[in-house]
Write a protein that binds this DNA or RNA. Structure first.
Lengths: 217, 217
DNA sequence: TTATTTCGTTCGAACGTCCGTTCGGCTCTC
DNA sequence: GAGAGCCGAACGGACGTTCGAACGAAATAA
């Protein structure tokens, strides 16, 4: 992956490519393999998931797998990069036109929970395998994670500034408290859970808002 | 581990043993190895941690390691079992004489955060490797985890009953929200963090209490 | 007392398996 | 026939686990 630029490698499938038919097929196969790998990672964990299992899940041969991804690590990296990018760009889109700090926080949580409910395997792997990458791949994934964290932190900060609580509140602790709740979702929530995602999102929002302000939304 | 009873295997070192000197030494060596394994698990993750690395960390040979633990899985299981047992019994002790629901919740969070700050490696592994056990070992670890969860859930329930919030609140979502915050601690807090554990515990308590009631402690 | 046996403890060396990765060659399409 | 796509087969290494032998101290027998 060192031979290609990040913006060529990790974006969602491009609208066009140099060699149209072949290019489309290549990207589609690549996405299909990545999707299969994601579910294998989610089921077995990154270390225990073998390239042979991923190949079977993607319905390609072991050697064929290496035609699309140079290394096992690249599978995890590209997936994490795409997911964090999507989370961040989705959030930025949803935030357009939302000005009240409380509404922005509400939007952030709703955006995250919605994305989670629609991409459970991806977010499980992203929450659980944060330290499975090494070196440059870790740094790049970390960078975009921090951008997501930073944006959330700013939203929380403006909520607090507008309506400070009557007890000492550290901004970092508050932010990590929210991410803890959100990133723990994959441990207990699934599509067959009685509580629908919208209700979960709204309760987390209510709890967190009341928690950092002292009253509900 | 199938040839011994759980209460023989997994309790903390017994006060006496049949063969005093030798028994003491055996238990001490066992504890020492378990301690080393815990830190290796915390650093590399269960799957990536090798028995060879654990043996080096414990300063025994690879084969010598197997004199104290039959399988790699047993290392993880005994550790998890002891930690969850300690968490549960600690909490029960701390709760003795505490009657107000709010004080009981405050006690639970303080107890958990204090234990976490003093046993970071253990709780990191317990939070991160919940699904690394299989079969009977998984079931046994799960059972005691659920006891800890159940006790916490009851505490939260009585807080809510005494002082219901003005928005719909699902008890399970609320409980998991708290455990998410607590179990995510290992991702960002460490002994050199500027915020001391007592402050973290008190802020989590304040946030969570205000979150489920609408006002602070 | 000494000689012998037992047993808990330790370890070097190996076994079989699975892993990530590579290589050479096959089959299509252009 | 050039090149992409694809694959069977293998390579080297790391893994969890086992085996047989050694050691020392305690227990037993002489």
């Amino acid at each position: 992956m060192d031979s290609q630029r990040a913006d060529q490698l990790f974006e969602s499938p491009p609208a066009e490519s140099v060699s149209p038919a072949a290019g489309d097929t290549f990207e589609a196969r690549r996405d299909h393999i990545l999707q299969a790998a994601t579910h294998v990672f989610a089921q077995y964990g990154y270390e225990k998931a073998s390239m042979r299992t991923i190949a079977k899940a993607a319905d390609v041969s072991l050697a064929g797998l290496y035609h699309y991804f140079e290394r096992k690590e690249q599978l995890l990296f590209v997936m994490q990069f795409r997911v964090f990018s999507s989370l961040l760009s989705n959030l930025r889109e949803w935030l357009v036109g939302v000005e009240s700090p409380r509404d922005r926080l509400c939007t952030m949580i709703r955006s995250h929970v919605t994305y989670f409910a629609e991409h459970m395997a991806e977010l499980k792997v992203c929450s659980h395998e944060l330290d499975s990458l090494r070196g440059e791949t870790y740094d790049q994934a970390r960078e975009i994670r921090l951008a997501y964290y930073g944006l959330t932190r700013e939203i929380i900060a403006s909520v607090i500034e507008l309506d400070p609580p009557d007890y000492p509140l550290d901004l970092h602790v508050a932010t990590m408290s929210l991410f803890g709740t959100l990133n723990w979702l994959y441990r207990w929530w699934n599509p067959s859970h009685p509580t629908p995602p919208k209700v979960v999102a709204s309760q987390i929002t209510n709890q967190f808002l009341a928690g950092i302000c002292g009253h509900t939304a």
